[in-house]
Nucleic acid binder design. Structure first.
Lengths: 219, 219
DNA sequence: CATATCCGAAACTGGTCAGTCTCGTATAGA
DNA sequence: TCTATACGAGACTGACCAGTTTCGGATATG
C-alpha cells in the first residue's frame, strides 16, 4: 500500500506536471480585484472578522481560486496591504509653495482625507495582528504610514534649508504628528478628520512647534 | 404545548428559589481576580484571541463560575475594562509646581509609564470591537484615555489662568496630544515611550504650541 | 447535621471558519 | 480537436471556541 501502486515517480523531473506550457493559463487580471475585495472587507470587519468567503463573494471568485494564489489568509492580507501602496505618491508633483504652511495646506484634499480615514480604519482592524507579525507591521508601515510621513519630512527639511523654521526642531516627531493625531481622532475619539481639524493642527501645533513665529504663520 | 404543562408560575414571589438566605454565598472576593486575569489575557492576545478558558485558567476559576457572574464574554471584557479605572486618579495630590512644564514633568513616573504602555496595548487589542460597540468604546475612553487627558486639561487651564500660556490655544487638542503620540509610538512604531520621549514631546511640541516662549521653557 | 447553594473540573453542544477537495465548465496551446 | 489546466460553486473536514450542563466536593445557614 506504500510503493506498489504508483507507477514509479522515478528520478525524472516530475513527468506530467512540470511547469507545463500546456493548458489554460492563470488569469492574473483577477488578482487586483481579489486584493481590492480583501482590503474592502478588511476595512469593514478587521482581520479577525474577515472571512475568505466574504472576500471570494465580493470579488465574485471561488474560494479555491484564492487559495490557489495565496497559501493562507495571512498571506492574502499581507499582499493586500502591500498593494495599497501603489498609486500613492506622485513622484514629483508635490506642492512647493515656498512656505511650510503653504505646502502642508496644499496637501489637504477631499480625496486624500477620505482615503486617509479609510486607511486608518484598516490599520485599526489590523492592530491585533500587527502585535504578532513583524511582516504585517512592516507592510502597514510602508503602505499607510510612511508615504504621508515622508511627504511631511520633505516639507520640513525644505523649510529648514530655507531658514524658515529652526534646524533644531525634531523633524521625525513633527513628521509623524499629523498621522498620529488623525489616527487617534478617527479610531479613539470617533470624530471626523476634516480640513478644519487638519488646519487647526497645522496652525495650532505643528507650526508653533517648528518654531514659526505666530505673526508669520498665515503669511 | 404553550401554557398547559407548567404548574402555574403564579403570582407569588418565585417560591422555592427566591433570594434565599440559605446555602453557600457567592464568593465575591474572587471577582477582582477574575477581572484582573481578563485584563491580563486581553493585553496579551486582544479581544478575539482571548478565550474564556484562558481567563478561567489564569484566575484558577471554573469556566462556569465566570458565566455565573457575567452573561457573556463581551460583558466580562466590558466590566474588566471599566474596573481598570479604579485606583487611578488620586483626587487632589496632583502636582502643582507653579509652571506648566513643572506639572507635566512631575507626572512622568516609571510606574505610570509602564502602566500607560500596558493600557495602550489593551486599547490596541480592542480596536476591532470598539468599532461595533459604543458601550465598549465609552468604557475604554473612560478607563484609559480620559483620566490622563483630564489631568493635562487641568494643568493647561491652570496655566492659562496664571497667564503663563495663551488663552487662545486649543486646550482639547493639546490635552490629548501626549496620549495620541504615545499610542502611535507604542502601537504603530513599536518604540518605547520612555521619560526622554515624553520630555521631548513636552519641550518640543506641547509647550511651543501652548505659546510658551522658548527661553522660558526650562525655567 | 441537613439543605440550598456555591465551587472547580471537565464533558458536551452548536456554530463558525480556515483550508481542502470535487465537480462541471471554460480556455489556451499543441 | 485534444489535453492539461484554471475557473466558480459549493460540499466537506477538522479545529476552535462561546456558552451549557453535569459532577463530586466545599460551605454557610438554620
Amino acid at each position: 500500500m506504500t510503493a506498489m501502486t504508483q507507477p514509479e515517480p522515478s528520478v525524472e523531473p516530475v513527468r506530467g506536471r512540470s511547469t507545463s506550457t500546456l493548458g489554460r493559463k492563470r488569469d492574473h487580471t483577477r488578482d487586483p480585484q481579489i486584493l481590492e475585495a480583501a482590503v474592502d472587507v478588511l476595512a469593514e470587519t478587521g482581520f479577525d472578522g474577515m472571512t475568505i468567503d466574504m472576500v471570494a463573494a465580493r470579488a465574485k471568485a471561488g474560494k479555491a481560486t484564492i487559495y490557489r494564489r495565496w497559501p493562507s489568509k495571512a498571506d492574502l492580507v499581507l499582499d493586500a496591504v502591500a498593494c495599497m501602496k501603489a498609486g500613492e505618491l506622485d513622484p514629483e508633483h508635490l506642492p512647493d509653495t515656498g512656505t511650510l504652511r503653504g505646502d502642508l495646506v496644499a496637501m489637504i484634499r477631499p480625496r486624500s482625507i477620505e482615503e486617509g480615514e479609510r486607511k486608518l480604519r484598516i490599520m485599526g482592524g489590523l492592530f491585533g495582528m500587527i502585535a504578532n507579525s513583524p511582516e504585517l507591521a512592516d507592510a502597514v508601515h510602508a503602505a499607510i504610514i510612511e508615504p504621508r510621513v515622508a511627504v511631511n519630512r520633505l516639507f520640513l527639511r525644505r523649510a529648514i534649508e530655507r531658514g524658515e523654521i529652526s534646524p533644531d526642531c525634531d523633524v521625525e516627531t513633527l513628521a509623524v504628528l499629523a498621522s498620529a493625531m488623525a489616527a487617534f481622532r478617527v479610531l479613539v475619539q470617533k470624530q471626523p478628520v476634516d480640513a478644519e481639524y487638519l488646519i487647526s493642527l497645522i496652525d495650532g501645533v505643528l507650526l508653533p512647534a517648528a518654531g514659526v513665529a505666530a505673526d508669520r504663520r498665515t503669511a
